[in-house]
Design a protein around this nucleic acid. Structure first.
Lengths: 209, 209
DNA sequence: TTTGTTTTGTAACCTTTGTTACAAAATGAT
DNA sequence: ATCATTTTGTAACAAAGGTTACAAAACAAA
């Protein structure tokens, strides 16, 4: 079990407790980690990989909320745990993911005992709030072309690669629009020499910024 | 100081501490309670009235995030407190507002000491997350006419009155669109006998739903 | 009343986004 | 190779929302 990263964030005693009481889980790319309506009894702390968090409405429209990477936690899960609420979001493994699921009894104990844990949790809440605010800003104030560019940059940052593997259909889904619209906008970007399009692949050129 | 409501939520000992360590503040309609970039050192617990929480982007576009009423807290403030962050939102008194501002040293103490406080805080986080998710859903998946209707219903519920006092301009601002568009949609609603328009006033008719 | 300000109504037009439909290209399976 | 499936390209059109411009109405102040 790879707990190296945790050592940098939490005190040794807490890391030991996490090993003791947490459940280690691993997921393959595309695996469903959490789904709408499922009861939440554990809070995940991500050790490795990236988790995609989505929101769907009644009509099946889905939109990307944010990504969680190593040492980040799903804060929403935490606040749900306390009252054993159902999930309001869907979480999918973006690549291979390892995490520790912390049972909710420990969550409260640690909050009192470990300052590092309390800070971690509060920082998580804050970061998640800001992500959601950014998401709202993006949808409310920016046009699709800007949002698409931001989306591609996000992927680039996240994967560390300038080659993005995704179909137009997937992108359309995550930006809550239609495939034709995305194809159109991508083609514009290609025409202005900022990207090159392949099947299931988009190469970001230097001019992309 | 009106702490009656608090008695129903928190144990007496905690209410006493809140009186002792909290700072009582009152605001008139329209007063600025919190603004972008200001440092947050206290967490407000609302005793009376309604607070409007807004988000603005770089270009000055503003959008309504949610309302906070009695016994609700600005959870975002909490998570900011811990690391003395700057505010990411603006909060305005929708009507006359009374609140207690809790200094952040006490926040942590109470988290350990009082289960009622911990639950209150976690419930707050959860409710705020859900509000933001709803907001995202609304913007991403619903057309303006639906959003406008939802907005009016919200105001109705909040004020307990079927007469909404607001200019088209204000509504446009809070829905992040332009005045002309709102006037157009309101006129449609009037034509279909669901509302009646006056200056600075919108009367919701029974047919409004 | 007169004047200035705010609010609302409306038309005309433009841009962005969404929809439908169909073809071509790439890929995978048999 | 042949066939089916997935992905992408593109055109044509529809709808929603944004913008500009101007006038009328309501209101406030002098």
């Amino acid at each position: 079990m790879n707990l190296d990263n945790l050592q940098h964030v939490f005190e040794p005693k807490l890391v030991t407790e996490m090993q003791q009481f947490g459940t280690w889980q691993s997921f393959k790319e595309g695996d469903l980690i959490m789904d709408y309506g499922k009861y939440i009894r554990m809070m995940p702390v991500i050790l490795k990989g990236t988790v995609k968090v989505l929101r769907m409405d009644e009509n099946g429209n889905e939109i990307l909320l944010y990504y969680l990477s190593s040492n980040e936690s799903c804060s929403m899960a935490y606040s749900c745990c306390v009252e054993a609420k159902k999930s309001e979001v869907r979480a999918i493994a973006e690549d291979d993911v390892e995490l520790i699921a912390i049972p909710h009894v420990k969550l409260d104990d640690w909050l009192c005992q470990y300052t590092s844990w309390r800070n971690y949790i509060m920082r998580g809440f804050n970061e998640r709030f800001i992500e959601l605010l950014k998401s709202i800003e993006s949808i409310a104030f920016h046009k699709l072309d800007d949002r698409l560019v931001a989306y591609l940059k996000d992927k680039q940052r996240l994967t560390g690669s300038s080659v993005i593997k995704a179909s137009h259909y997937l992108i359309a889904d995550e930006l809550a629009t239609s495939r034709v619209v995305i194809s159109r906008l991508l083609k514009q970007l290609e025409n202005s020499k900022k990207i090159i399009l392949y099947r299931n692949e988009i190469k970001l050129l230097p001019a992309f910024g």
